[in-house]
């Protein structure tokens, strides 16, 4: 275990999240059980007040988690200076067995919390508070990944061993890697690229048809294949090195921090796509977020596609 100031900051905030998370969990549990919109009993009265507390806590956690996700990646990036063998955050993340799961959990939780806030927003806009019970039932469910994430993060920093030599991204994201990531390289990269553009086209079609299930599905698939295509196909063009495949080095200064922009676009686009579709499925409200989703997704596709195109124009060959 190493106590860099960054890690202490992350752990302190994790403790706070855990504390508030537990409070919110118990209150949500009560709310999910006893909420009755039509009652005017003292119980309902105190539940109403508690629901404000839960919403406030969730807003607080989400508002902090957004920048903290970036901060986490940044901390790992910084740690890669200390840990032998690591050249970017991916080496540090993968130095612990569950590091990658931790990162994925963080991302997943951002989606969940974001969706919860969308639902909360829709709920508060309606006089009848139609989704209050639903949203607290959902939070009871959502709090488990939150606790898992906090637990994983604490375990991650505790078991992070500075003197251990780790692999750099060059070996992790290659066909030679022994992990499941190498499976991605078995298949022809053009298949992944095809799926990436295919699901993007499908999400556009779904938007045009205003078909919510399709929007949800195509955005989820688009997210997954965007990341795979990024690792397998697009990243070498960003680095201009045929063997350098890494989703983390994008975040470094050498590449003008372009990763932060790309990931923000991708995550916002798919979040609005999936969250908006989910919300319209539940509430039958008109789709207000789909336009944002299409905008962000398109921007992402355009920027990431420009890398190989510009490379081809400049050098006349594909990597």
């Amino acid at each position: 275990m190493s106590l860099t100031p960054e890690i202490i900051a992350l752990l302190t905030l994790d403790t706070i999240f855990l504390f508030f998370g537990v409070i919110a969990f118990f209150l949500s549990f009560r709310l999910a059980l006893y909420w009755n919109n039509d009652a005017s009993t003292p119980l309902q009265y105190s539940l109403t007040k508690q629901s404000y507390l839960v919403a406030t806590i969730i807003k607080y956690i989400f508002m902090l988690k957004l920048p903290l996700f970036l901060f986490f990646i940044y901390t790992c990036d910084k740690l890669s200076n200390i840990i032998a063998g690591a050249m970017c955050a991916s080496g540090v993340v993968n130095s612990v067995d569950f590091g990658l799961y931790l990162t994925l959990f963080k991302l997943f939780n951002l989606y969940l919390f974001g969706f919860w806030l969308l639902l909360h927003y829709a709920d508060m806009r309606c006089e009848k508070l139609p989704y209050t019970r639903l949203k607290f039932i959902l939070f009871v469910a959502f709090s488990f990944p939150l606790f898992v994430e906090i637990g994983l993060e604490i375990a991650f920093f505790v078991s992070l061993n500075i003197s251990k030599i780790v692999s750099c991204c060059g070996t992790l994201f290659s066909a030679a890697s022994s992990s499941y990531i190498s499976l991605l390289f078995v298949v022809d990269e053009l298949l992944w690229v095809g799926l990436f553009y295919g699901f993007f086209a499908m999400s556009l079609l779904a938007f045009w048809l205003k078909h919510n299930v399709l929007i949800l599905f195509s955005n989820a698939m688009f997210l997954i294949f965007a990341i795979i295509a990024l690792i397998v196909f697009f990243s070498p063009y960003v680095y201009e090195l045929p063997t350098h495949r890494c989703p983390f080095c994008l975040l470094q200064k050498d590449y003008y921090y372009v990763g932060y922009l790309l990931y923000t676009l991708l995550f916002l686009g798919t979040f609005y796509g999936m969250g908006g579709a989910m919300l319209s499925l539940i509430s039958k409200e008109k789709m207000r977020f789909s336009k944002l989703s299409v905008g962000f997704n398109t921007l992402y596709v355009v920027i990431i596609s420009l890398y190989p195109i510009v490379y081809f124009i400049r050098n006349g060959v594909w990597l």
Binding site: P5, T12, I82
Partner: peptide, 19 residues
């Protein structure tokens, strides 16, 4: 690396007291 560790450790130790 050893210097970096010492300083991270020292500021970390301080931070723990600070917390």
């Amino acid at each position: 690396v050893s210097y970096q560790n010492i300083f991270d450790y020292k500021s970390g130790f301080f931070l723990a007291l600070f917390s």
